Deep mutational scan, measured.
Amino acid sequence: GATAVSEWTEYKTADGKTYYYNNRTLESTFEKPQELK
């Protein structure tokens, strides 16, 4: 079976905060997504 690849990509803001962006739902969040835990 195919492994589900996380759609979340980790980015940093200009002031160094980490956030996560989902390229399928176009959602962004500062909290670590469930799929990455």
Rank of each mutant, 00 (worst) to 15 (best):
D15F: 05
R24H: 08
R24F: 13
E27N: 03
Q34E: 15
T3I: 12
T29G: 03
T18I: 12
K37R: 14
K32R: 11
G16K: 01
K32N: 05
E7M: 06
Q34P: 14
P33R: 02
R24Q: 10
V5R: 07
E31R: 06
S28A: 12
K32S: 04
Q34M: 11
R24G: 04
F30S: 08
E7S: 05
S28I: 15
S28K: 14
K17F: 08
E27F: 04
A4I: 13
T13D: 11
W8F: 01
K37W: 14
S28T: 15
Y21H: 06
L36W: 09
T13K: 03
P33F: 02
T25F: 02
K17M: 08
S6I: 08
T25K: 01
E27M: 09
T25S: 04
R24I: 15
A14S: 10
E27T: 07
E35Y: 06
T25A: 01
S6F: 08
E7Y: 08
P33S: 02
E31M: 08
G1V: 14
K17P: 01
Y19K: 04
Y20H: 00
W8P: 00
K32W: 03
N23G: 05
K37N: 13
E35P: 06
E10R: 04
T25Y: 02
K12Y: 08
T13S: 07
T13V: 02
E31F: 07
T9K: 09
A14Q: 09
N22A: 01
G16T: 00
E31H: 08
T18W: 05
F30T: 09
K12Q: 11
L26K: 15
Y11A: 07
Y20E: 00
K37V: 15
W8I: 01
T25M: 01
F30A: 05
T25G: 01
T9P: 00
T18N: 03
A14I: 11
K17D: 05
W8E: 00
D15L: 05
P33Y: 02
N22H: 02
E7T: 06
T3L: 13
E10Q: 08
P33C: 03
K37G: 15
Y19W: 11
E31G: 03
S6V: 09
E31A: 07
Y20G: 00
G16D: 03
E10H: 03
F30G: 04
N23H: 14
G16F: 02
E10D: 02
A14Y: 03
L26P: 01
A2R: 08
T29A: 04
D15P: 01
N22D: 01
Y11T: 05
T29F: 05
L36R: 04
W8L: 00
E35Q: 09
V5N: 11
Y20Q: 00
T9R: 10
G1P: 13
T3H: 12
K37L: 15
E35A: 14
Y21T: 06
E27Y: 04
T3Y: 05
S28V: 15
K12N: 04
T25Q: 01
Q34Y: 11
P33N: 02
G16W: 01
L26N: 15
L26V: 02
G16E: 03
G1I: 14
L26G: 15
Y20D: 00
K32A: 07
F30L: 07
F30H: 06
K37P: 09
K32D: 04
R24S: 08
E35M: 06
T29S: 08
T3R: 08
A4W: 10
T18V: 12
S6P: 11
L36T: 06
Y20N: 00
K32I: 10
K17Q: 10
Y19G: 04
T25D: 02
E7R: 04
A14R: 08
P33M: 02
G16H: 02
D15I: 03
Q34N: 14
T9I: 13
Y11D: 03
K37H: 12
T29L: 05
T9S: 12
S6H: 10
G1T: 13
Y11H: 14
E10F: 04
E7G: 07
W8V: 01
S28G: 09
A14E: 10
A2N: 14
T13W: 03
R24N: 08
S28R: 12
A14K: 11
K17E: 09
D15T: 06
V5A: 14
N22I: 01
Y21W: 10
D15R: 03
Y21L: 08
N22G: 00
T29W: 04
T3C: 13
A2Q: 13
S28N: 05
E10V: 10
T18F: 06
Y11N: 04
S6M: 09
T18P: 06
N22L: 00
E7Q: 06
G16R: 02
E35F: 06
T13F: 03
E35K: 04
N23T: 13
E35R: 04
K37S: 14
Y21A: 03
K37D: 12
K37M: 15
S6W: 10
T25W: 02
E31Q: 10
T9Q: 12
G1Y: 11
A2E: 12
S6T: 10
V5S: 13
T29D: 02
L36Y: 12
T9D: 04
E10W: 07
T9E: 10
K37Y: 13
